[in-house]
Structure formats: C-alpha cells, structure tokens
Design a protein around this nucleic acid. Structure first.
Ligand SMILES: [Mn+2]
Ligand SMILES: [Mn+2]
Ligand SMILES: [Zn+2]
Ligand SMILES: [Zn+2]
Lengths: 179, 179
DNA sequence: TGTCTTCTTGAAATTGAATGGCGTTAGAAT
DNA sequence: ATTCTAACGCCATTCAATTTCAAGAAGACA
C-alpha cells in the first residue's frame, strides 16, 4: 500500500473493527506531508498539531501512533534521542537505516540492500523468521564539528547514547565531549 | 584493554579525576563474571547485587553503569525490552549484533564482519567518522513458537517494539499476536 | 599517620515518557 | 434514527531514570 487516503485508511481501520476519526486522519496527514527523512516523537507531533490549530490530546497522540505502528502505517524507531520516533512506513522498497550523530543527535537515513541481505542470511542460519532489520550507526557529523562540538569521544567509548546531558555528580575535566 | 583488575580500574578512574569505590569494583565484577551473551538492566543488576548480599543503591547502580558506558567499559544497548541493557565492552574483536524475538523478547548475539564493513562504507561516503554500528534484527524465535506464541505478526507490521502489552482500548480480534 | 578537599553514596523527591481509568462523545452498522 | 461500543479528552498513575543534598569515604599531601 502506497499512501493512505481518508477512504483507504477507513477501510483499513474498519476491517479490524476500528474507526476512522478526525484525529487519526489528521495525524496521518501530518506524517504524509512530512519531508522524507524526518521523524516525529509523540510530543513533537502533539506540538505540531497544536500549532496547526488542530490540538489533539497527548494520550490520543500516543495511542494513535502506537496503533498506526501496529497497523504498519508508521514505523516506530528507537534512536539515540531518548524517546521514540515515528515515521511513515511507506512501501517496503524504501526500507532504510539510520546514522545518528552522538554529539548533536541529528539523524540521517540511508539505504543499503546488502545489510538487509546479511541480516536475512543471519536469521536463516538460525532458522528464525525475519521481521525487521535495522542498522544504527553512531557517528559524529560534520555539522556537529562546525557547531563546535568536540571532534572526538573518549577513546574507548562505544555506543553509549547521547552523552550530552551525562555528567557524574560533578564533572572534572572529562577528556572530551560534554555539553 | 582486555579485562579490568581493581588496579587498572582505579588508574583508569583516577586519570579522569574519579575514584575507585567498592561499589564500582563490585559492579564491574558482576559484569566480568557474567556469561558471554548476557545483558543486564540497571534493575536486574541491582537485584543481583542484593542477592549476592552486597546491596548497592539503585541510584548508584544507574550512575555507575552510565559512567562505565561513558568510559567505554560497558556498552549500553537499546534493544526491544523497553529499558536499557548493559554488557561488558570487551575487546573490539567481539563486536557483535543482536537478534531480538518480538514475541518472547529473548536476545541472541551474533557476529558478522561484513555488516561493520558496510556501515563503514556508508559512513565514509558521507564523510563522517564511525563510532559504533549495530544491527538489530527483529524475529520470532523457535522457542517462542514452542511456548505457544503466535507464529506471525500482523502482515504489514514493521519494527514496532514489543507489542505484547499493546492493545488499543479494547482488543477486537486482532489478526494475530497479543499476550 | 592525620588533615583537608571534594568526589561518591544512599534515601527520598522529582522528572518525564508513556499508559490506564473513566465519563462522555461520536463512528458505523442495521 | 436507534443502538452499540470504540475512541476521545482529562487526569491520575506508572515506571525508568535523574536530581538533590547531607553524610561518608577516597585520594592527595604533609
Ligand atoms: Mn527514518
Ligand atoms: Mn550483546
Ligand atoms: Zn551531529
Ligand atoms: Zn522468542
């Protein structure tokens, strides 16, 4: 399925005993007009809706994105920013992975078929069935450097999350990288 | 660095102005005696310490794993279970990825060099520097099937998290997969 | 060793994302 | 239009994670 109209959304919902509501239509629309490569958290989505003059309660926002993720309309992403992000789950051809800057938290998407293939091989070997397969790469991006973020993370640092707000009680001169 | 002794941990800490404490030593020990392939959440770690008869306050546990992740001693993982897990960040050769069952949440590790290489290629292309690179594959594992979990997730379902507890208000016959 | 500095701990309070309960509203089938 | 009940909004609650702060301990130096 490519992009949902109000009608196709409705029949999709109804087929499962669920209902089309203005809120669900609006939320889907926000995602459909969102530039490719953008993700929204529930909170961000909630703000956008407010700014648009179409406020929707936060619990409904949460419930809706969860539902749509479940339905396959949205994809729920757990990147480095600390809360979940959602993006339109467009047709499978655009399956992609993420490159996350550990300094500025900017996220960039990329496609790479051989990663999917490797994942598939891995899963087959174990006799499992693959549902999804996501590569997350942690980097420091050029923009971050330009913005004055430290050029390096501690030498042996590996895949901790956004370290921006992390400091143990008091911070002596940490070899590099703090806010 | 391969495995920390009390001494090497101390000098590592002191070099950054931090201190070796019994708590930090104990926590590191727990990880070092943990069978390979296991991960611990802060909460789980806290419990283990209690059972061992060496209770450490939960805040200290949280602070310590964060600190050690920052130092590169531990690796912080965001898998599907909802809270963070930590594992010993042993020497780089054992860099690995994770296979997560969306039904029973079991996690299995695997190694695959070509994934790292693909990631590296991707990063180079963008002119970034790679810090870490993790593939997470979502699957349904044979054990889960044997335990009676549904054999399939909704047809268009993609990489939502553990859906076990998700049901929209009331659950009409959802095509498959709930608790 | 003893003294001083300040990092670290632990208990409790707090944050913040996410969810649940509930009375009311409203979608959809007949 | 009537009926049934999913879904809404509001608010309370949960739960991981962080912060606060006084008391305690590690490390430096004499
Ligand atoms: Mn994306
Ligand atoms: Mn692991
Ligand atoms: Zn960046
Ligand atoms: Zn399983």
């Amino acid at each position: 399925m490519f992009s949902y109209t109000a009608d196709s959304l409705k029949s999709e919902l109804n087929s499962k005993g669920w209902r089309l509501t203005p809120q669900r239509e609006t939320i889907l629309q926000v995602f459909q007009t969102l530039p490719r490569g953008n993700h929204l958290s529930a909170e961000e989505l909630h703000d956008i809706l407010g700014q648009r003059g179409e406020p929707i309660s936060l619990s409904t926002v949460y419930r809706t994105v969860k539902l749509m993720a479940r339905m396959g309309i949205l994809r729920e992403l757990e990147l480095a920013e600390g809360h979940k992000h959602y993006e339109l789950n467009s047709a499978s051809p655009h399956h992609h992975h993420h490159l996350v800057c550990v300094q500025c938290n900017r996220t960039i998407e990329f496609e790479n078929d051989s990663i999917w293939k490797q994942g598939l091989k891995q899963v087959d070997r174990a006799g499992f069935q693959m549902i999804d397969c996501q590569l997350t790469i942690y980097t420091i991006c050029p923009e971050a450097l330009r913005m004055g973020w430290p050029a390096s993370v501690p030498s042996r640092w590996m895949c901790s999350r956004s370290i921006a707000s992390m400091e143990p009680t008091a911070t002596p001169e940490v070899s590099s990288s703090q806010v």
